[in-house]
Design a protein around this nucleic acid. Structure first.
Lengths: 181, 181
DNA sequence: GTCGACATGTAAATAGTTACATGATTCT
DNA sequence: AGAATCATGTAACTATTTACATGTCGAC
């Protein structure tokens, strides 16, 4: 069974509510799904073209002066295709972690180097928490409680916060163990 | 800057202590690093060949009857290469999560379907916890406390447990929210 | 004798990223 | 005038997976 490119579902989902350009989708992803889903411009434009070819979206060009904006709209068959995917069980992804790999091999190097790695990641995890708080304050607070998306956006945000906190606890645990040796 | 293939470091790390065959490395990974690092046979054999070409490992053939086993041994320059990587800061990986993507788009479908996704993942997370416990009991308990690897192996295991528990808490939270609507 | 685990590999396809390329508009 | 952002795209490359291919050995 060949591996499926799931980018198309992310794009169709973004178009589900309202027509948008590729650029707008990218911008919105950067401030919403970026911590669990990202697309690059080199992937989104060809994918939009493929979706149009397959009749899942249609496009029209708008012009602001001479600057073109290609607005994509999801079709009925696109919505059906998207909802079919929504009903399928989400695949559990096997993620690689370079930090855990280095820690696994920690015995090959010095305690100082191991601690340095963990402390660096601790800084990153704290930064991640700050970013999530900013999304909550700047993006999510703008959305009305009646907005059907709000509770789901909160949940994904809460996931990021909760996991970042668990990681921080683990990092502190490990740093303490290595320091008291 | 081109992206680097990190498989070679995983392999060199596995060879750091003792010479092994590709198959043995794969077997050991399956019972140790599989939840944060995996290689497939189609990646490990070509990579071992490349490492030998670059002088980072050497190989010799052993025979058990007619069955060949190619044993790879890390060289001095291989160890140096590996330790240089160990000293570099671990890259923070941007992982994609299909579950979070589906939940993000939860408003496009029914509460029942959303709950179903979360309940399914809860089962997987519990299974993950069971697997980690088995590793602790079957693999890690066999390793002496004096073994230099033990504390690091415990830490990576503890990470898996801690994150799985945080995920379970989050899943229960979300399931409750969706059920009481 | 045949099934599953052992053991090593290649071929083909796909996914995903980086770098490249172009030009418009807005802000300072 | 120049920099930053808007906006869309292609080319080239690298990584990674799936499927294929081959043969050995031990257990039942």
């Amino acid at each position: 069974m060949k591996k499926e490119n799931k980018s198309k579902y992310a794009i169709l989902g973004m178009l589900f509510d309202k027509p948008q350009s590729g650029y707008e989708i990218l911008q919105f992803m950067k401030e919403s799904t970026t911590h669990f889903w990202q697309e690059s411009d080199a992937s989104i434009y060809p994918m939009l073209k493929a979706l149009e070819r397959d009749g899942l979206v249609t496009s029209r060009s708008e012009f602001v002066g001479k600057r073109e904006r290609k607005i994509f709209e999801i079709t009925a068959s696109g919505k059906k295709y998207f909802l079919t995917w929504m009903a399928l069980p989400a695949e559990k992804e096997n993620n690689r972690s370079e930090l855990l790999l280095k820690l696994f091999f920690g015995a090959t190097t010095t305690q100082e180097e191991n601690i340095k790695q963990l402390v660096m990641r601790r800084g990153q995890a704290q930064e991640t928490k700050r970013i999530f708080r900013r999304i909550a304050e700047q993006t999510l607070s703008q959305v009305s409680d009646e907005h059907p998306h709000k509770q789901f956006w909160s949940m994904t945000l809460r996931y990021g916060l909760k996991l970042a906190e668990a990681e921080l606890e683990w990092l502190d645990e490990c740093i303490n163990i290595l320091k008291n040796k």
